[in-house]
Design a protein around this nucleic acid. Structure first.
Ligand SMILES: [Mn+2]
Ligand SMILES: [Mn+2]
Ligand SMILES: [Mn+2]
Ligand SMILES: [Mn+2]
Lengths: 147, 147
DNA sequence: GCCAAATCTTAGCCATGGCTAAGTTTATGC
DNA sequence: GCATAAACTTAGCCATGGCTAAGATTTGGC
């Protein structure tokens, strides 16, 4: 029942690890919103607040507040009572976020995770995968396809 | 340059995916704290606030506030100016969190990610891995060891 | 074209998790 | 054992991201 040794690492190193997670979380809402807005524009022609809120499972005022922040930070534009548009910056973030999300999703499928679980897990995992790890994921997806 | 089809899923289903990520994030601080506190008790004999704060890379008052919440929720006990102890509930959460964290870390190593990146990525990823995916990770770690 | 329903905004609330500044208590060194 | 340093608490600030209730605007049906 004894647990394996786990020597403490350098305090400053460890602090940098947690700092990086906090940074990832700071971008998370932004990435999920622009990705969703882009999906809605592609498939429905426009992104309405009511639909963004419904798909996130939150209230319209909550979604509206975050949209205001996204506008403040230059990811979207929106006028009162109108639908939401992505800026170039927002579109670029949406594209890269979706690409990363898709790789994480396909990777999970490739190693044998079910569709349903892959969909659930990838929504959270996507924001914490480094470029290096993403590269490894891509390689494994390719190998799987070959077989 | 065209992107693959990505039909929108059912709104309610999608909302449940995001709801699950929000739940995971709600437990995240708790898990990281009890895991760290347990590590400190194991290796240093006790967990002092000053060290918790230093290793998380945040101020002492910030760490203290979260410790107060953990106490309120029954994960730790602490008296003013004394070190921090885990309750049974806290110890159990620490153990399962560490086990999961270790599996995610070792899985990344097993598929070819570097030590440094595995350490960084696993700190965020650990909170979003379902039991099903964790099972697949374990299997792949075992296979790797056999080779 | 008008009324009702849908959509969106505004106002105000809350919890979490960051911060700094300043005060209190405990520990340490001499 | 006393002075100083270290550790901890308190107070008060902020941003994010949830909520409800209620008011404003737009849309759609007839
Ligand atoms: Mn995504
Ligand atoms: Mn996501
Ligand atoms: Mn996360
Ligand atoms: Mn973590």
């Amino acid at each position: 029942m004894s647990s394996p040794d786990r020597p403490l690492q350098n305090p400053n190193q460890q602090a940098q690890v947690f700092e990086r997670v906090r940074q990832a979380h700071q971008m998370e809402a932004t990435e999920d919103y622009v990705e969703l807005i882009d999906d809605l524009i592609r498939t429905q022609g426009e992104a309405r607040l009511v639909e963004v809120a419904e798909r996130l499972g939150i209230s319209q005022p909550s979604a509206g507040k975050t949209i205001a922040r996204l506008q403040r930070d230059g990811y979207v534009t929106s006028e009162p009572y109108r639908s939401i548009f992505l800026t170039d910056k927002g579109k670029q973030l949406a594209d890269s976020s979706r690409a990363r999300h898709d790789i994480v999703f396909k990777f999970l499928l490739a190693i044998g995770v079910s569709e349903e679980t892959a969909k659930l897990d990838s929504e959270g995992l996507e924001h914490h995968v480094s470029d290096e790890t993403l590269g490894v994921f891509k390689r494994i997806i390719k190998q799987q396809v070959k077989k």
